[in-house]
């Protein structure tokens, strides 16, 4: 499968990339790890005439934490997220989730920015970003703006990213020490998208759940922030009634398509089951 022809650019700064993208007009695309875009180009479902490779822009890489905010450069690879001692300490669900994306070779090129910005509902990081209430930092010709992950996704492959804009970083408020976390993903095999998956974050205080945040992967046109599911846990001791209420609230918003991963009703129940397992594992990790 041979992709269509394109002009290739390799900028070294974000400003240069944004200018190139503006000059290219609507047939220009940025290239991150390429593991969504290149397969689409091979199928001629995407035929950009200009590709702007972001892989050599140093300011788009790196992970740091400062003043209670984790900042991850958009071109940080999933392998770099997995290898980060800092993330393993302060926000381990990022590592747990990244390890369930695709396979080692793909994670060496696949980036956090590409995964969240592409708008593919099968991608794992968007729901996690919604559960973490992350913000996306976006650069364009007229400057920089931030969009909450919970407001970013409009439909499959449609996001708040406008023509000419580049996602540059992801910002996450560092979760409190002792928080519980789990990313539960049901998949048919390594490298597959989720049949359903759930990101669960919670905090405990005096035996009660002080706060909970839950989001779902690949059971809708977009990642789904399950606000009511989290609310059903807050203030409870995570007993059976509370967990059942959270599972029911998550199942109520799931709208998966029927595909090779199973019929609609099955995938809704898998989503509920991922939430149930996620709550149990997150609670067991909380202190």
């Amino acid at each position: 499968m041979i992709p269509g022809a394109f002009d290739y650019h390799r900028p070294s700064t974000v400003a240069e990339a944004v200018t190139l993208l503006a000059d290219a007009g609507e047939d220009g695309r940025v290239l991150a790890g390429g593991h969504s875009l290149i397969p689409m180009m091979k199928l001629r479902m995407a035929t950009p005439e200009t590709l702007i490779d972001l892989r050599h822009i140093d300011e788009l890489r790196g992970i740091d934490e400062n003043g209670g905010t984790i900042t991850i450069g958009a071109m940080t690879t999933q392998a770099e997220m997995i290898a980060s001692g800092l993330l393993a300490d302060v926000c381990p669900i990022l590592r747990e989730t990244a390890l369930q994306i695709a396979d080692p070779q793909i994670r060496n090129l696949g980036t956090i920015g590409g995964n969240v910005a592409n708008g593919d509902p099968g991608n794992d990081l968007p729901a996690l970003m919604q559960a973490l209430d992350a913000a996306y930092v976006i650069a364009g010709k007229s400057g920089s703006r931030e969009v909450a992950a919970r407001d970013f996704y409009e439909a499959a492959y449609f996001t708040a990213l406008q023509d000419g804009e580049v996602l540059t970083a992801i910002r996450i408020a560092t979760p409190p020490a002792g928080h519980g976390w789990a990313y539960e993903k049901q998949k048919r095999k390594i490298g597959d998208y989720a049949t359903a998956a759930a990101a669960v974050l919670l905090t405990m205080s005096g035996g009660k759940c002080a706060s909970a945040s839950i989001a779902l992967t690949n059971v809708g046109d977009t990642p789904l922030f399950a606000e009511a599911a989290g609310a059903a846990l807050a203030g409870t001791d995570l007993g059976a009634d509370a967990v059942n209420a959270a599972v029911a609230a998550a199942e109520a918003i799931a709208e998966p398509a029927e595909d090779g991963r199973g019929p609609v009703d099955f995938r809704i129940k898998v989503a509920g089951q991922m939430v149930r397992r996620g709550i149990a594992r997150a609670a067991s990790r909380a202190s």
């Binding site: 290739y8 390799r10 390429g34 397969p39 590709l51 892989r55 793909i106 060496n108 090129l109």
Partner: peptide, 18 residues
């Protein structure tokens, strides 16, 4: 699979330009 700058990658999904 080949090594690209010391990392395993799938060379069917890398442009020569990259």
């Amino acid at each position: 699979t080949v090594d690209l700058d010391g990392k395993s990658v799938k060379s069917c999904t890398v442009f020569v330009a990259q």
